[in-house]
Design a protein around this nucleic acid. Structure first.
Lengths: 103, 103, 103, 103
DNA sequence: CAAGAATTATGAACCC
DNA sequence: GGGTTCATAATTCTTG
């Protein structure tokens, strides 16, 4: 595959070449370009994810300064993710268990 | 935020709203509309976040089926987030400690 | 267990006896004594676990004040949990991927 | 916490430790014995921690086969860790928010 | 054995 | 700024 076989280079030179000039698309038997593509796409998406996380944080800060209890608001959001029937069922059981324990 | 949102509702509609959601935008002294806005915005952003997480998962699945070791790829990504000098420092220490332990 | 008649038992013991004889001794059809036993045993074990976690934290504090890099020490401990061959394999791959990316 | 962990070892034990793992107690300018002591103590405590975790897991398995909802039992345990007043307060707020949202 | 849930650990954020 | 709680990431374990 390579036009400049590494067996005529010493290791350091080969390494330099790979890094600086020709990132050998199959260096070490690896599909380097494929790997780079994968990593860069993940990094891009992670950045977007982080931006959204920051936005969410801002909203909770707003909630807090509006006087809401952020922990409880988060709990509400968690409940809304579940099926109402499931919530109902869990709350019934929770009541039952607490009663059994005298809580 | 309107203080009298029901002015334009007929009685039946108002009644339904009261029953199903919240008749009183200040029930229990709570700014219900404000709370709802906060929660819905967070939920919207969380959906987007989830979509991105799924995309990332897809990419790792692709990496795996291309023969890459996903754990190691993640490690590479983690390393790329750090300053090169910091990485260097950690690796030097790691070597030192392992040597001290005969590993 | 005890051969002593119920009137010399404390409440817990009486309760236990009640459960063994009658699987449905309490409100809501719940085996309250069984539940209580489960919860109390878990809580006891969790306390012990917490104590151990605190001890570990103390040791890392000691390591830090002795000049060790705690993050790297933890990494060493993680490595020691793995098979040497597995560690070797991962490090080889990591090198390979980093080289492919010019890191 | 002892600053001199070898105080409690006899000479033979200290000597054995040095021999098996690292012959040079100061390899690389590192207090190798100190490091080894730290790591081995942590590993010992982590083993105990794991044993307790397994015990807890067993109890939850028992709870499950006795017909309890393990998730709800865990929730009860979480509630019991909090101050009753705090639980009460949170539940009041939760009710309030849910009502405001018509949940 | 792969997918999903649950636990654990690390890193970030908040309060004191 | 240090310590503690909280969020995210990773590993582990269970289940289909």
């Amino acid at each position: 595959m390579s036009d400049a076989p590494f067996d005529t280079m010493d290791e350091a030179a080969a390494s330099r070449a790979r890094q600086e000039a020709d990132p050998d698309p199959e260096a070490g038997g690896i599909a380097a370009d494929r790997l780079r593509s994968i990593i860069e796409r993940v990094e891009r998406l992670e950045e977007e994810r982080k931006a959204l996380a920051d936005d969410i944080k801002d909203i909770f800060a707003e909630a807090k300064s509006a006087g809401f209890d952020v922990g409880v608001v988060k709990q509400v959001i968690r409940l809304r993710k579940k099926e109402p029937a499931e919530v109902e069922e869990m709350e019934t059981l929770l009541d039952l268990y607490r009663r059994a324990l005298g809580m």
